[in-house]
Amino acid sequence: MTASTVDQTPGRKSGFGGTLLTLLAWVIGITMFFPILWVVLTALKTEQTAFSMTPTFIFSPTLESFKSALAQGSGYWHYALNSVITALGSTLVGLALAIPAAYAMAFYPSKRTDFTLVWMVSTKFIPAVGVLIPVFLVYRSLGLLDTRLGLTMLFTSMNLPIMVWMVYSYFRDIPVDIVEAASIDGASTAQTMFRVILPLALPGLASTGLLALILAWNESFWSLTMTDYHAATLAVYTASFKSGEGLFWARLSAASVMTIAPIVVLGWFAQRQMVRGLTFGAVK
């Protein structure tokens, strides 16, 4: 391909405009990534270097902050376990509820299906703080405050609308003929779902699950307000470094790194799995 044909490629800007766009993309990318980079760098500094007013990029790295963040008294593993249980639990329960709901809406739509979908997602428009008091009072009466069950339920209901919407859109990509073929072949609704639809929607279900897991893992509002210690997650653990004795930037950063690390690693590995398409060749 010659340079001139490259220039004519649709959607590709040439010359000054193109350079400007590239520059803009880099600026946005770096701006978004910088806080994460800075947290990692700070975590590797001593408290003194971390606290200095002039930002330092070159320093001798130390794992001191990680050691103290992981020290016995910090309770990292307790918080991490709570995060794993609530995030994983809410994801599994969410999928178990979202799959049949999305299945019904995708393959047996009624007049109200569209409305129901929009209504479900519209519940996400309400700021969480708006329902804090009623939820708190109900949880107090039911004894669910500072329990893993309570937090899991909150995470599930928080993510359910998005999960239903996502699973619904993956199901919609599966031709309805396949469901009909299965029903003529003698499959019950459950058999159609488990033997035909779910295997086809697996990449979609995996990405839905992963997103729900990330959202639940990173959730901090409900974790901070509805838990104290027993059910507290890594979000509470990270926040606890900003209190009492004052600010410890390096330790806070180390705690942050350890909070986000598991989910970043998981996302990295699951990436390829998520974008795989299976339905090609199903029809036509």
Binding site: D177, E180, A181, D185, A187, G281, A282, K284
Partner: peptide, 17 residues
């Protein structure tokens, strides 16, 4: 449909991918 003892060939084939 499953109790009608019929078989159907679809325009789109509708094979299980």
């Amino acid at each position: 449909p499953r109790d009608r003892d019929i078989a159907m060939v679809f325009q789109s084939y509708a094979l299980y991918p």
